[in-house]
Measured scan of single mutants.
Amino acid sequence: MAAGGDHGSPDSYRSPLASRYASPEMCFVFSDRYKFRTWRQLWLWLAEAEQTLGLPITDEQIQEMKSNLENIDFKMAAEEEKRLRHDVMAHVHTFGHCCPKAAGIIHLGATSCYVGDNTDLIILRNALDLLLPKLARVISRLADFAKERASLPTLGFTHFQPAQLTTVGKRCCLWIQDLCMDLQNLKRVRDDLRFRGVKGTTGTQASFLQLFEGDDHKVEQLDKMVTEKAGFKRAFIITGQTYTRKVDIEVLSVLASLGASVHKICTDIRLLANLKEMEEPFEKQQIGSSAMPYKRNPMRSERCCSLARHLMTLVMDPLQTASVQWFERTLDDSANRRICLAEAFLTADTILNTLQNISEGLVVYPKVIERRIRQELPFMATENIIMAMVKAGGSRQDCHEKIRVLSQQAASVVKQEGGDNDLIERIQVDAYFSPIHSQLDHLLDPSSFTGRASQQVQRFLEEEVYPLLKPYESVMKVKAELCL
C-alpha cells in the first residue's frame, strides 16, 4: 500500500493539533497551500530580480507567473513527485505547466533550498508574528487579574506546605514575570531571523556568478533584492546548502521555554482548584465526569500541561538535527523538520489560546482563602504575639514557653481530632496574655502579614508589564474561544 493518505478522510490519521486544537490561522501558515504558494512567490521574486539585473526574462513571463501564483494543481504535483521522487522539481514542473512561456526560467540558477529553506524562514517569521500578540493578550488578562487582587491576602506555599502570606495578585505576578520573559525572547528570536537568500547549491553562489558572467556586484544585488522582497532586513552571508540548523534550535528553545512557563502556571491553577481557592472557567453544560456528576475538573489547565510537556520535548529534535548536518548538509534534517517545526508552533498556539481562555474567566473564592488563612495564621502570628507581650512588660522566655504549650495543644486538636485551630481562643482565655487581649485582632490582621506584596504588584505592572504590552494595544480586544 502506498504511503500517505487522504487526510480529510475519517479513515486516515490526522494530527489532533490540526484537527482538534490549533487555530485556523496557525494551521494555514503550515498548510501545503501556504507552503507551495510561497515557493511560487519566491520563484517570481527571483525572476523579477534577475530581470532587473539584466537576464533575458520578459515582462510577459513575469506576468504569467504572477497570474498563476494561486493556480496550484495539487493532484498534478503529487503525481509528479511520485514520478520524480523530488518535491521541488515536482512543483517546478507543475508551475511550468500553467506558465508555459515562463517554464524555462522558473528556478533559474537556484537549488531546492532556495524555495525550501527560504519558505521555512518566512513561515517561522509569520508563525512567530501570530504567537506574539496571543502571548501579549494572556499577559494582559493576567495583569488585569493581578491588579484587581493585588491586596487580597492568601496563604503562600513553599514545598506545598503553608508559608508566609502573600497576595493573590502577587502570586499571579510570578506567572506574568515568566511570560514577559517569554514574550521578550519570542520577539528577540523573531527579529534575529535572517533570510537564507540566493546562495546556490553549497552556499557559494557559483551558479549565479556564472549567470551574471562573473559580476560579483550583481550577485550581491540579486541576494539583497530577493531578501528585501521577502520582507527581511538581512540575509546570511555564510550558508551551506541550507541555512544553519542552529536557527531551528533557537526558535524551538524559546517555544519550549514558553511551554515550561505555561505548565507551571496551569499546575498552580490545578492545585488551587483542589484547594477550592480558584477555578478555571466551567461552562453551564460542561460535564466533569461521566460517573461523578459533582466533579469540576480543571480540564483546560490539564490540557495545557499535557501539550506543554510535548512542546518542551520537541527542542531535542533540532538539537540532534543540527549535530548531524555533515559538511554542507545531509538530508537527516528533512523529514524531522517537516514534523517538529509545525508541531512546535501548533502546540504553542494551542496552549496560548487555551491559557487566554482560562485567564479571561478565572474565578476566585475569597471566603475559602480566608478560612485557610484562619487555619494557619495563628501559628504564624506567634512571633508577633511574643513581641507584643514583651512590649507590655512580659518575659520573652516565659511567653515563648506559654505559646509553645498552647500551640501544641491547638495542633493536637487540628491533627488528632480534625478540629479547627483554636490557638487564639486559648490565648484569649489565658490570664497571662490579658495585657494584649485587646491587640489580638490587630495582630491577626492578614494584611499585616503580606509585606509589600501589593506595592510590588503595582510597581511591576507599571514599570515592566504595561510598557512591554504597549506595541500590542491594537490587538488586545480579541477574545479566545474554545470549541473543545
Results as ranks from 00 to 15, higher is better:
142 L>M: 11
68 N>D: 02
342 A>V: 05
36 F>M: 01
357 N>F: 15
277 E>K: 02
381 A>T: 02
444 L>C: 14
262 V>N: 05
249 I>L: 12
239 T>E: 00
258 L>S: 11
392 A>F: 13
7 H>Y: 04
160 F>R: 06
359 S>P: 14
86 H>N: 02
293 P>C: 06
283 E>T: 14
164 Q>P: 08
20 R>M: 13
248 D>M: 06
244 T>F: 09
378 P>C: 12
184 Q>F: 07
121 L>D: 08
279 E>F: 04
232 F>D: 01
256 A>C: 04
203 G>H: 00
325 Q>V: 00
328 E>C: 00
173 C>P: 02
150 A>W: 01
403 I>K: 02
252 L>I: 04
249 I>N: 12
32 D>V: 09
213 E>G: 10
56 P>A: 09
119 T>F: 05
297 N>D: 10
144 D>M: 07
121 L>R: 04
170 K>V: 05
90 A>R: 04
361 G>P: 15
281 P>L: 09
112 S>G: 11
135 L>S: 12
83 R>H: 08
448 S>W: 10
35 K>I: 03
11 D>S: 07
45 W>Y: 14
169 G>F: 02
261 S>V: 05
51 Q>V: 05
172 C>T: 10
93 H>L: 08
105 I>C: 00
16 P>A: 01
321 T>D: 04
324 V>I: 13
213 E>R: 10
376 E>G: 03
121 L>Q: 11
263 H>P: 12
392 A>Q: 04
169 G>L: 03
128 L>N: 11
417 E>S: 11
123 I>G: 02
468 L>Y: 00
112 S>E: 12
221 Q>I: 04
120 D>P: 02
401 E>C: 06
325 Q>R: 02
187 K>Q: 01
329 R>V: 05
196 R>C: 11
24 P>Y: 12
407 S>W: 07
112 S>V: 07
228 E>P: 15
229 K>V: 15
404 R>L: 08
29 V>S: 03
402 K>R: 13
400 H>I: 11
384 N>C: 15
431 A>E: 15
406 L>G: 10
124 L>T: 15
89 M>H: 04
35 K>G: 05
106 I>V: 08
232 F>P: 12
216 D>L: 03
2 A>R: 14
25 E>Y: 13
367 K>I: 00
294 Y>G: 12
292 M>Y: 14
308 A>Q: 07
199 K>A: 06
214 G>R: 11
411 A>G: 14
463 E>A: 06
134 K>A: 06
317 D>N: 03
242 T>W: 05
262 V>W: 08
354 T>F: 12
235 A>R: 06
71 N>R: 06
262 V>E: 02
47 A>N: 13
450 T>P: 14
282 F>S: 13
217 H>L: 06
464 E>K: 15
266 C>L: 04
367 K>S: 12
346 L>M: 15
247 V>C: 00
55 L>M: 04
38 T>A: 03
402 K>L: 12
52 T>H: 10
159 H>P: 04
381 A>C: 03
399 C>F: 10
129 D>Q: 05
439 Q>P: 04
443 L>M: 11
14 R>P: 11
384 N>V: 09
163 A>P: 00
257 S>F: 11
328 E>N: 08
233 K>M: 14
158 T>A: 10
408 Q>E: 07
270 R>P: 10
281 P>E: 15
220 E>L: 10
298 P>F: 15
182 D>I: 09
468 L>K: 12
176 I>G: 04
379 F>G: 11
296 R>Y: 04
239 T>N: 13
384 N>H: 10
385 I>C: 10
287 I>K: 09
354 T>S: 11
218 K>I: 09
457 V>I: 10
350 T>Y: 06
416 Q>L: 02
450 T>C: 13
349 D>F: 06
6 D>N: 14
382 T>S: 13
424 I>R: 08
277 E>R: 03
54 G>S: 02
327 F>Q: 09
456 Q>G: 06
293 P>Q: 11
330 T>C: 09
304 C>V: 10
292 M>C: 07
264 K>Q: 14
397 Q>P: 11
176 I>E: 05
283 E>D: 13
296 R>W: 05
119 T>H: 05
